Amino acid sequence: AIERGSKVKILRKESYWYGDVGTVASIDKSGIIYPVIVRFNKVNYNGFSGSAGGLNTNNFAEHELEVV
């Protein structure tokens, strides 16, 4: 089962992080479509409006993740 702290591989082909491994930061139990927040070591794009980097978290559905 996917739980907080799990290392997961991203299976969503259109994702910037496809094939990468991230760490589960949290799981939303409220029934939303993409409840699993995954944190990565790298950012997906340069930040804007003065922020240092881009996003390094993204929401995924459990079926888009594979525990490694």
Rank of each mutant, 00 (worst) to 15 (best):
A1G: 10
A1F: 07
I2T: 02
I2A: 03
I2H: 03
E3G: 10
E3R: 12
E3F: 07
E3K: 10
E3T: 11
R4N: 10
G5R: 02
G5L: 03
G5H: 04
G5Q: 02
S6M: 13
S6C: 14
K7T: 08
K7A: 06
K7D: 04
K7E: 06
V8G: 01
V8S: 01
I10E: 02
I10R: 02
I10G: 01
L11C: 11
L11T: 05
L11M: 07
R12G: 02
R12V: 08
R12L: 08
R12A: 09
R12P: 03
R12K: 07
K13W: 10
K13L: 12
K13V: 12
K13G: 04
E14N: 11
E14K: 04
E14H: 05
E14A: 06
S15I: 04
Y16T: 04
Y16G: 03
Y16A: 05
Y16I: 06
W17P: 00
W17N: 02
W17H: 04
W17Y: 05
W17L: 02
Y18L: 01
G19L: 13
G19M: 11
G19I: 13
D20A: 11
D20K: 09
D20R: 10
D20N: 09
V21P: 00
V21F: 07
V21E: 04
G22F: 06
G22T: 02
G22D: 01
T23M: 07
T23P: 01
V24P: 00
V24C: 07
V24S: 01
V24L: 01
A25S: 08
A25V: 14
S26D: 13
S26F: 11
I27Q: 01
I27H: 02
D28M: 08
D28W: 03
D28L: 09
K29P: 10
S30T: 10
G31P: 06
G31H: 09
G31K: 09
I32L: 12
I32D: 13
I33G: 12
I33Y: 07
I33N: 12
I33R: 12
Y34P: 06
P35E: 12
P35S: 07
P35Y: 13
V36T: 00
I37R: 09
I37A: 09
I37S: 10
I37G: 04
V38F: 00
V38Q: 00
R39K: 12
R39H: 09
R39F: 14
F40G: 04
F40H: 03
F40M: 04
N41G: 10
N41H: 09
N41E: 14
K42T: 10
V43E: 15
N44F: 14
N44R: 07
N44D: 15
Y45L: 15
N46Y: 06
N46L: 11
N46P: 15
N46C: 15
N46E: 15
N46M: 07
G47C: 15
G47Q: 06
F48Q: 15
G50S: 10
G50C: 15
S51T: 12
A52W: 09
A52D: 15
A52S: 11
G53P: 11
G54V: 05
G54Y: 07
L55H: 08
L55E: 13
L55M: 13
L55D: 10
N58A: 15
N58H: 13
N58C: 15
N59Q: 06
F60H: 01
F60M: 00
E62V: 10
E62H: 09
E62W: 12
H63R: 06
H63K: 06
E64I: 03
E64F: 03
E66H: 06
E66C: 10
E66R: 07
V67E: 04
V67Y: 04
V68F: 05
V68Q: 08
